[in-house]
Amino acid sequence: MSALKIKKGSSKHSAYNLRSNFGEENETHTLAVLVDNEAGVLARVIGLFSGRGYNIDSLTVAEVDHHGHLSRITIVTTGTPQVIEQIKAQLGRIVPVHEVHDLTVEGSSVERELALLKVDGKGEKRVEALRLADIFRAHVVDSTLKSFVFQITGTPDKVDAFADLMRPLGLSEIARTGVAALSRGGTEQTD
C-alpha cells in the first residue's frame, strides 16, 4: 500500500498495542510520518505539538516521492509512554497524514544526522582538529588558512561528541540537519 514500502506499522491500531502499564518515565521515540506534500501540512504537525504541549527534539522534512507528492517527516520526541501513544494517535487524525510509524518500537532502525561545523584556528589546534576529524570520519568540505568546515554524519550522539571536542579547538558555527531514520532490514510486502 505504501508508496515507500515502509513496513506496516501500528499507527491505525495504536490503542491495541499498548504496553501493560503506563510508566511515568520519559522515553525518546523517533516517528516517521508520511504526509501529502501540500501547503500547511508542516504547520499542522508542528501546531499539534505546540498546541498540546508535546516536545520536538528534532524534526526533518522533505518530499520523498515526487510523483505521489508525499513528504516524510521524521520527528524525535520525548514523553511518557501515554504521551507518545497520544502523539501517534493525534498525528494519525490529521487529514493529510497517510502513515505514522514509531521506529523506536517497530523493530530496530538506523538514525543519522548530518552536521557542518566551522572551526577557526591556527597552528597546533588546527592540526589537532584535523586529526580528530579523521578519527570521526568527518570530511573537510571547505578550508582557508584560518578555518575548516567539517562535514560529519552519524547518530546525534556522535555529532554531539565531535562538537564537544571541536569547541576548545575553535568551533565557531554549527549547522545540523536533524535526524533522518529508517527501519533496518528488508521491506515486508503486506498487500
Partner: peptide, 17 residues
C-alpha cells in the same frame, strides 16, 4: 471512533475503535 480518544485521559482495559 477516534483512536486518539482511547487512553487519552483514563487508561481503559477494553478499547474498541
Amino acid at each position: 471512533i477516534d483512536p486518539s480518544s482511547i487512553n487519552k485521559v483514563i487508561r481503559v482495559d477494553i478499547p474498541i475503535i
